[in-house]
Every structure is written in structure tokens, then in C-alpha cells.
Design a protein around this nucleic acid. Structure first.
Lengths: 351, 351
DNA sequence: TTGTAGGCGTTATCAA
DNA sequence: TTGATAACGCCTACAA
């Protein structure tokens, strides 16, 4: 192997093969017992200052790094969690992972990321592997924001479902508040003086599509405003549908002054057609998206105001709940995380 | 904790607290010694068939799962690798992770994914954590396809740099063949009868931009073809630049018949302006991108022909090299992975 | 074919 | 303040 450790730690029995110093090496070098070395390194009080520095120096010199596996064997805690995802692109799982990393602290807990690729068998495999690695907990991230099958009730570690809730109400699930997000989007448009607001969104079989629409309609109703375009335009989560729906919408109702798109992809399609029809954004028509998918939102023309699902916050929360559950009880039901508005240039006050 | 293991394994000393059966529990239930149970479960030959089934049944009944941490202590192998990335969106690391997972086999090896977020300090933290977890190897994925600082030469485990090469030639790096990719793109256009080919690409400080351009120019030269637009249009990796460059290009050289864009983002900008200028794609002008970033390429109008960097293959290769290195030697230098052409509708034969 | 004993690298509980 | 000693869960000679 092309590595050259200069410090080959050795025992009385001869040089070590592994290339990694153990606590015994440190103790030997410092001239103390293993127990003392351990105490010194874990800064326990009952150790003389002079001894401690001697041990610390020895450890430094051997670039000693404690074997977490051995520690875990004793403490019954591996300091790892598994993130089991089905989200091929990592679009949702990565922010969640980062949030979790943040909350755990990278030196405390490491995260195994496993992608089941929508395959149930592969999920079972990964699950088994993670359990045998003695993860302290599990975060499950589904492929879409709808209920997914529970992993089951009698797992030996706490499990949290993030983004996609579990279909078993006894499990704890953390999801974005899609109703609130829809409401937030429309509220933003209303505050900007828009009155003729339409809504184009994706596949109606997605709970998220229904929820966002509901939030939008609720807010509209509060204001006594009708939905422009006479209906929620359900379709597909694609730019193509965004384009098609916008064309139909404009035909039916040419003087809308705002469109709430159920995703940034759809919003891109909307912008495209608006552009083509020479309708100025945001002056004539304001557009707001959903997801804050950077590559789409920032590059849009104009850059897209959108609703961010706050997945990092969701990841942080998952980590906190997991952490609390490790020596307490885990709740159940569905907990909701508030999304947040990202203002860019595709919306602006009327006038 | 909200879990209800029905099988509470117990020892003679009383019920277990952990909720997880150990080999001792299995042995006890099967009425054999721990050693025999171990042999039976690891199907070693020297064990009577009847005994084995008895052990297997006991294990099943207790839903025994061997403690990988304990195994690792003995075998000096954790069965884990670390994937250390700086790629915030996971755009490159996820495919690489999936490739590595594939090659390792999910039951053999699990992957720790750590994101350093471009922060050097955080990277050191993660590195330390991974080493103390006794990962068997490390895959390092940088943020951009250019040389990144080496982790150093005397790490106790083999390290492979993927996507971004290490700046130390003694390390082993695996990267996409960008020169070959550029060549491949232009070759495709030439085969489709295009003769007036222009190239718009990103930030010239990126090695990848230079390499792709070089490949393109090489192939053009072989054919005795000039570069349309008189120059390689370097700029930024954004749609906005794609739009701006296309406008300038069309002004300088209105009758190009193909554009090779250095990224799919840029290609989107190119398509946008072509559309605006009423130039039909692909009939009048063919467009090819780079990256095969699905969300951009598939949704483009028309869907984008592009060069895929084959990152999954890169991940698989990294896993294989790592695996080989664990009890052999790791090579050094830069190894290259061939990209592949993804044909969609933005290119077609002329006529 | 089965069981006993020692050890992997730590930590924790005692005595000294 | 320090050091034996016994775990933790598993594997592997070696002995029976």
C-alpha cells in the first residue's frame, strides 16, 4: 500500500502489524498502565497532572486514535445512525443529511447513507446491514412526500421517517408543512397586491400537490378572492406540463396577475410560456415556485421566488428527536416543519 | 421507546437489557457452547448437521444479528468506507456512492457519507472521526473537477480521489476523461453532418473546461474543420452565460449548424436563445450538452443530447481499487474513466 | 464433533 | 493517584 507511517508503534512483543497505535502502546510509552492511560485521555479527574501530560504526549507521538468500535462494544452505543433513502438523486436526502450532521456534531455521530433505489429487497438488505452495524438510530427518507410503508414496529432502535411519513401512525414522522407552504405562497402574492391568482401543480395523486393546493385555496378564501383560471391545474411534475397548463390557462383567463406553481420545475415551464407570450414577469404576472431547487430557481429568468421546504431544519429536528429517543421515548404521529419563503425577482408588488 | 420486541432474550443471569440477542443467547437456547454456535452460523464444516439446524433455529427465533463491531475488532476490518465530499448538492457524490455501493455489495460494506462543505477544518474533523471508526478505506470527492489538496501520504488506510484528482501525484485519482468527452461530443455532431460547430463553455480556470475544449478542437482539427465563431467562448457555468454567449456568437457567425455546450446548464441557455431567434433545434442547429444532469437535460425543449460522465462507473472503479488495495498495493497517478454519449432529440442528422 | 481459553481495544470497578 | 481485573460480543486455535 502506498503509505509510509513513520511512527511504527511497537510492543514488547515486537513491531505491530496494523500500523495503528493502541492504548497499550500509549501506556507503554508513557510508562503507565492501560487503565491510567485511558483515564488520562478521557480527562477523568483522578489522575496526576504530570502523568496526564506524559500520556497525552505519548498519544500524540504515536498519533493515537481510539478505536471507536471497541468503545462501542462497551458503551453499547456505536455513535452512528443510518440514513435509509429511496431518493435516487439525493435531492431530498442530502439536505436532510447535512442538517442531521449539524445537529449531531460530526465528531459525535457519523451517518451511513444507504440508497435502496426504490427496491424493497434492497431496503431489507440495507436495514439488516445497518442493524448489525449497531446504528443507534435510523432516519428513513422516502422518494416522494407521501406515506410510505413502515419498517415495522419491533426494530431494536428508534426510527424516524423524514420527508415521507410512515403509513403506521405509531411511528414518528417529520414532514414539511405543505398546506402551510401553499398558504405562504398565496399570502406572498396577495401582499404584493395580486388578485387574479392561478395555481398550476403536479400529479394529483401526490398528497403534497393536494396539500399545497388546499393551503392556497384556504388563503384565497380568507381574502374572499376567487381562484383565477377556475380550477387547480393538476398534471405532472414537469416543465412540459408547466408550459401546457399555462397556455390553457391564458386561453381561459388572459388577465391573471400571478401564478403559483407547485414546483420549481413547473414554474420554469410557466416562465417559458409567459416569456413567449410577451407577458412581463413580474410586472404583469408574478410567478412563485416551490422547492427552492437552486439549479432551477437561481438560473430562471427572472430568478424565481419560491418556497423552501427547509429540509435541513427537518434533518436537524430528526437528529434531535433521535438523540432524545436514545435514552427516552420516541413520540409518534406526524410532526410538521414550517417551510420558508425565498424572495427573488419573479415576484414584486403590483405598480 | 416505542418498540415492542416480543422476544426478550435472557441469560441465566436474568433478562438482558439491550434488547438484542447475542451469540451467548443463541448458544444457550440451542444448548451448545458459544464456539459451536459461532461455527454453525459461519457455516464451518466441523459441525454436525443436526446441531447446525438447532443453532440456526435458535438464531432465527431470537432474530439474532451478529455484532459487526465485535467482529471488526477481531478481523481488524470494519467493513466500512468513508466517502468524504465537498459537493454540497451531492450531484457528483451520490452517483459515485451508488456505484461504490454496487461494487462493494451492500451487505459487505457500508458507506459513511461526510460532507465537509468546502471547509478545511470540517474535513479534518470528519477525517479523524472516520479513522477512529476504523474505515477500511476512503473515497474523496471534491467540489469541482480540478486538483484538490491531498489528504497526505501517511494515512493508515488507502485513499482514492474520485472526480477531483489529488494534487499529489503519489496518490491515486480517478477522473472522467474530459478530453475524450469533448472529442466525443464533436464527433457526434460531425457524424450528423454538421460542419459549422461552435463551442460555448464555462469558467476557463476549470481544468474540465480546458480539457473538453481541447478534445473538441482536436477532433475538429482531425476533420480539417474550423471552429465556428472563431473562438472557444469561455465564461461561467450558468444559463445566463449560455444565453449571452449564444447571442454574441450568432452575431458574429449567423450560420452555425451546431453548438457544443460545456455543461447542460449552459446548453439550456443556448436553447433558450435559439428558440427566441426562431432557429429550429435540431434541424437548423444541433445542440449537445455535458453532464447529463437529468432535471435539466430531460426537461429541455427539445430534450438534450449530452455527455454523461459515467460517475457510477467511476464509483464502481473506486470501490474495486479500494478493495484491491486493502490487501495489496494501491497504485498512483490519475486514472481515467470514459464518458458516454446520451442521445436525445437536440441533435439529429442534417437533412 | 464439541468445548475451553485467550484475545481484539476499550472502559469501569475495585483494591492497593 | 494508580493498577489489576473483568467485562463488551465475537472468533479461533487447541484440547477433549
Amino acid at each position: 500500500m502506498s503509505r509510509g507511517s513513520t511512527e511504527q508503534p511497537s510492543t514488547a512483543d515486537g513491531p505491530r502489524q496494523t500500523g495503528r497505535a493502541t492504548l497499550r502502546d500509549v501506556a507503554k510509552l508513557a510508562g503507565v498502565s492501560i487503565a491510567t492511560a485511558s483515564k488520562a485521555l478521557n480527562n477523568q479527574p483522578q489522575v496526576r497532572a504530570e502523568t496526564r501530560t506524559r500520556v497525552l504526549q505519548a498519544a500524540e507521538q504515536l498519533s493515537f486514535s481510539p478505536n471507536t468500535l471497541a468503545q462501542g462494544l462497551i458503551t453499547q452505543r456505536s455513535g452512528t445512525v443510518g440514513l435509509l433513502t429511496s431518493d435516487l438523486e439525493g435531492r431530498f436526502s442530502i439536505p436532510i443529511l447535512m442538517g442531521a450532521e449539524d445537529a449531531f456534531g460530526s465528531d459525535q455521530t457519523s451517518v451511513f447513507l444507504c440508497d435502496a433505489r426504490g427496491d424493497n429487497l434492497r431496503e431489507r438488505h440495507h436495514l439488516r446491514a445497518l442493524l448489525s452495524r449497531r446504528v443507534d438510530g435510523l432516519i428513513v427518507v422516502g422518494a416522494r412526500p407521501d406515506a410510505r410503508p413502515s419498517l415495522g414496529r419491533d426494530l431494536p432502535v428508534p426510527v424516524i421517517y423524514a420527508y415521507s411519513p410512515s403509513d403506521d401512525p405509531a411511528d414518528l414522522s417529520l414532514v414539511t408543512d405543505n398546506v402551510g407552504g401553499g398558504r405562504m405562497a398565496v399570502d406572498h402574492l396577495i401582499r404584493h397586491g395580486r388578485r387574479r391568482i392561478a395555481h398550476i401543480t403536479g400529479d394529483p395523486s401526490y398528497g403534497a400537490a393536494q396539500d399545497r393546493a388546499r393551503g392556497a385555496l384556504d388563503r384565497l378564501a380568507e381574502e374572499g378572492l376567487p381562484l383565477a383560471g377556475d380550477q387547480v391545474w393538476f398534471g405532472a411534475w414537469s416543465e412540459a406540463w408547466g408550459r401546457g397548463a399555462t397556455r390553457m390557462l391564458l386561453q381561459r383567463d388572459p388577465d391573471i396577475d400571478a401564478i403559483f406553481a407547485g414546483s420549481d420545475e413547473i414554474a420554469r415551464g410557466v416562465l417559458d410560456v409567459l416569456h413567449q407570450e410577451k407577458l412581463a414577469v413580474p410586472t404583469q404576472v408574478a410567478v412563485i415556485g416551490f422547492d427552492n431547487w437552486n439549479i432551477l430557481a437561481v438560473n430562471a429568468r427572472p430568478p424565481l421566488t419560491t418556497i423552501d421546504m427547509n429540509l435541513e431544519a427537518l434533518g436537524r429536528l430528526a437528529a434531535q428527536r433521535l438523540f432524545a429517543a436514545i435514552d427516552g421515548t420516541l413520540g409518534s404521529g406526524v410532526e410538521t416543519v414550517a417551510p420558508r419563503l425565498i424572495t427573488r425577482e419573479s415576484t414584486a408588488p403590483l405598480d
